[in-house]
Amino acid sequence: MYSNAEGIEWVEELAYTAGGQIGEISRQTDKAVLFRNGTANRLPVGTKIYETDTPVCMAVVDGRNPLYLKMVEWGGRILSTGMTNPILVWCFFIDGM
C-alpha cells in the first residue's frame, strides 16, 4: 500500500530520478476491502506508477508527478516513513512491492 506524500517536507526536498514502471492503476474504489493489485482510491484508472532512486515512487497523472511512500504494517499498526498522521488518502496497492 502506498500513500500520497505531498506536504511531507523531506519528500518534497528530494532530488530523484524516475526509473522503470512498476504498475498501473486498473481499478478505483473507496472500499478498503476491495483493494487488490492495481487498485487506487483517487488515482484514475490508467495512471502509471514508476519507481525512483529514493524511498518514494512516482505517479504520472494530469501532467503532475505526485510522490508516494510505501506504507508498512507492523504489529497491527500502519507505518509510513515521514508521516505524522498516516491517513489513507490518495493511496494505491501494487502486489509484490
Results as ranks from 00 to 15, higher is better:
Val33Glu: 15
Lys70His: 11
Val60Pro: 01
Leu69Gln: 03
Glu12Gly: 04
Ser80Gly: 08
Arg42Trp: 07
Ile49Met: 13
Ser80His: 07
Asn65Arg: 03
Gly75Asp: 07
Arg36Ala: 10
Val33Asp: 14
Pro55Asp: 06
Arg77Pro: 00
Leu79Ile: 13
Arg42Asn: 12
Ile94Lys: 01
Leu67Glu: 00
Ala32Asn: 09
Cys91Gly: 07
Ala59Gln: 02
Asp95Gln: 09
Ala15Ser: 11
Gly23Pro: 07
Gln28Leu: 12
Val56Glu: 04
Val56Lys: 05
Leu69Trp: 02
Leu14Trp: 03
Ile49Val: 13
Ala5Cys: 06
Ile22Asn: 00
Arg36Pro: 00
Ile78Leu: 14
Phe35Ile: 06
Glu24Gly: 00
Glu51Gly: 11
Glu73Gln: 10
Leu43Val: 14
Tyr16Ile: 11
Glu13Leu: 05
Tyr50Phe: 15
Gly38Glu: 01
Arg64Ala: 13
Trp90Tyr: 12
Ala32Arg: 05
Asn37Pro: 04
Asp53Cys: 13
Thr54Gln: 14
Ile94Pro: 00
Ser26Met: 12
Pro66Lys: 01
Lys48Ser: 05
Pro66Gly: 01
Trp10Ala: 09
Val56Ala: 08
Lys31Leu: 09
Val60Tyr: 09
Asp62Phe: 06
Lys31Gln: 13
Ala40Asn: 12
Arg42Gln: 08
Ile8Met: 07
Ser3Gln: 12
Glu12Asp: 08
Asn37Ala: 06
Pro44Glu: 06
Lys70Ala: 10
Met97Glu: 15
Ala15Glu: 07
Thr52His: 05
Asp95Glu: 10
Thr54Lys: 14
Gly76Arg: 09
Thr29Ala: 05
Gly96Thr: 02
Met1Arg: 05
Gly19Asp: 10
Gly20Thr: 15
Pro66Tyr: 00
Thr39Asp: 11
Ala18Met: 15
Cys91Trp: 02
Arg27His: 12
Met83Trp: 08
Cys91Asp: 02
Val60Leu: 08
Arg27Thr: 15
Thr52Ile: 13
Val60Asp: 04
Gln28Ser: 14
Thr81Pro: 06
Met58Ile: 14
